[in-house]
Amino acid sequence: METVLNVAVAGLLLGGIFALISVGLSLQYGVARVLNVAHGEFIMIGAFVTWVLYTEFGINPLLCMVIVGPAIFVIGFILYRTMFNYIRIKAPSPDAFEGNSILAAFGLLFVIQYIALTLWGSNIHGYTYLAFPIHLGTVTIAANRLVTLGFAVGISFVFYIFLARTRLGKAIRSAAQDPATASLMGVNIKRVLAICFGLGALMAGIAGVLLSMTYPVNANMGLHYTIIAIIVVVLGGMGSIVGSFIGGFILGIVGSIVSYFDPGLALVAYYAIFILLLLVRPKGIMGK
């Protein structure tokens, strides 16, 4: 029984991380139609900036979210408003835009990694923050992981409310469903898509801030998170925040159960789930 509880807790904590890194990509790919392979690089930047702010200026990592998030939002917004929007206009078809934007995102990946390598080198970094155990009955949880889970749930909830209730959120959802009609209805599609991409980048940055509390930080850390995020987003259904959120937790819990027997099989399990779910729901958990 204790083992089951431990596995469940580990799964929830891991699922929170997966959900956190995927929600941003869900917006970028689901709405803005950019399969941003540089997503993990934004996470890396968030983690690095937090590391610098904490170790050199002593700024609380949780406070860093307020600094890192808006800064990365602006970068993402400008990137979409200039480059990706230009590619979108020039592309002969939506499919061509998807292909071209992957290539451009690859370019972006190289550029961001280069900047990180130049600024911070290729050495491995990290810091310890909130690294103490919290005992809940028979279960022991690392405080920093619990905080990460809390923020993952909280931020995703705020995002959901934002999309469901605000005017901008409604514009984003209409853009996701049918960009052409949305722009006819008076939605400034360029601005909305750029905001979407920026928000995706913001989520990546915040994920980076939280991840840096538990994971080592280095310039090559990004791609691994990008791959997980892509799986989760596809699993959850295109453009569905809720889907990605649930998908992240499913992957985390299944990953933990499998890891309990053999950590080497976790990846195999992810793909097994992927295939099984697609057989049942070909468009993802929340896909329409």
């Binding site: 451009a104 990694q113 280069y114």
Partner: peptide, 20 residues
């Protein structure tokens, strides 16, 4: 030492200037 940035910018430039 500049391989990454040149290559990355080139990829972006190719897509921006030559979408096909």
């Amino acid at each position: 030492f500049q391989y990454m940035i040149i290559f990355g910018l080139l990829l972006m430039a190719v897509i921006v200037f030559m979408p096909r």
